[in-house]
């Protein structure tokens, strides 16, 4: 019994320290919303397309460019021909527009960096949400003010379910709604 006073339980101490660090790390992160998700992701695009100019300043509707969103599960990034509808004449001196024109003339495309990425096992249906009256800003935030597109919400399953669970939304809660 006497021995126990002097000998430090070295193993035990290490264990406690590690355990504390581990729990801080995990639970601490738990209290940081969006950690591990891409909330706030704002990658640089090959051409710095500025939504605030096009939408806020020039009042171009979302669905002018993203025209297939009400018929399709995808909200389409517009083809270059849509951009050239205006930019054949508009601001042709800008180097960015030059880049766009060059791609258009060559028959090539622009490789936009995808901002809102859902994992492969999730299937999101834009048209269904539009039909229900959900507007773009609800999930994508104030896009019309963004000079560079930023992911506004963390797009986690919990975040989606929060809305689906509101009884007034009348939204399905089956697993196969998104996972099939």
């Amino acid at each position: 019994m006497q021995h126990r006073h002097d000998v430090r339980n070295f193993g035990g101490m290490v264990f406690i320290i590690l355990f504390a660090a581990f729990s801080v790390l995990t639970t601490g992160c738990k209290f940081q919303p969006g950690w591990g998700y891409n909330k706030g992701y704002s990658p640089e695009q090959p051409i710095p397309f500025d939504h605030s100019i096009h939408v806020s300043k020039h009042n171009i509707q979302c669905q002018y460019c993203h025209n297939q969103v009400e018929r399709s599960t995808h909200s389409n990034i517009p083809a270059l021909s849509t951009c050239m509808n205006c930019h054949m004449q508009v601001k042709t001196d800008s180097p960015h527009i030059q880049k766009l024109r060059d791609a258009y003339d060559k028959g090539a495309s622009v490789e936009w960096v995808k901002v809102h990425m859902l994992p492969d096992f999730v299937r999101f249906n834009h048209a269904a949400h539009l039909k229900k009256g959900v507007n773009c800003q609800t999930c994508h935030g104030a896009i019309e003010t963004m000079s560079r597109v930023t992911q506004n919400a963390d797009l986690s399953m919990g975040w989606c379910i929060n809305c689906h669970r509101q009884p007034e939304n009348n939204a399905p809660l089956n697993c196969t709604t998104c996972h099939y």
Partner: peptide, 17 residues
């Protein structure tokens, strides 16, 4: 990093998806 590569000229009959 995932890329989205749209059409150069949108074909009339194609709706993505």
């Amino acid at each position: 990093v995932e890329k989205i590569i749209p059409y150069n000229k949108q074909p009339e009959e194609v709706v993505l998806g």
